[in-house]
């Protein structure tokens, strides 16, 4: 497996994904803020949470990149479009599995069952993250496709 490629390009791909998400947020397309969502696992202060969350996001991105690297190694080849396809799958898993499951484990995220004693501040993402804006699925899919394309282009199939 391309370990050195994984170490470097995993970071680059995660950086690209984060950049797309932040740009989409700034443009008003979505309120999904992955560093905030991850960082508030640790601290309630949004600014500090974003810093912590950014590093948690890097770790998560690096972990997922491992899966891409293994897949490329297993298939014996890689390309930008194969990476893009994997990215699409990755985005679908994030939207349909990871985000909806988060309220069950996130101490500061409410769920649709939250009651008066709930101390959770973050609203739940809902199906496909739609509570964070109707364009959230499209933005998340685009960001993950880009993540996959970067890895597909740069990671070797060794």
């Amino acid at each position: 497996m391309d370990w050195s490629g994984w170490a470097l390009f995993g970071l680059m791909a995660t950086g690209a994904l984060t950049a797309v998400m932040i740009a989409a947020q700034m443009a008003g397309f979505t309120r999904l803020d992955l560093p905030l969502v991850l960082g508030t696992l640790v601290t309630p202060d949004p600014d500090r949470a974003r810093v912590v969350g950014f590093f948690l996001h890097l770790i998560a991105g690096q972990t997922f990149a491992l899966g891409y690297a293994w897949t490329f190694a297993l298939l014996g080849w890689s390309s930008w479009w194969l990476g893009g396809l994997l990215g699409l799958l990755h985005g679908a898993v994030a939207l349909t599995l990871i985000l909806p499951l988060l309220p069950g484990v996130h101490p500061r995220m409410a769920s649709h069952r939250a009651g008066p004693s709930s101390r959770a501040g973050l609203e739940p993402p809902g199906l496909l993250g739609l509570n964070y804006g109707v364009q959230t699925p499209a933005v998340a899919a685009a960001a993950h496709v880009l993540y996959g394309v970067v890895l597909g282009l740069l990671l070797g199939a060794r």
Partner: peptide
């Protein structure tokens, strides 16, 4: 906190009303 999150998409414009989930 709700005001902060719900107004995020339209900011700096503040919509007169929003859904309960800020849509």
């Amino acid at each position: 906190s709700w005001l902060l999150h719900a107004s995020r998409l339209a900011r700096p414009r503040l919509p007169a009303l929003l859904t309960l989930m800020g849509r």
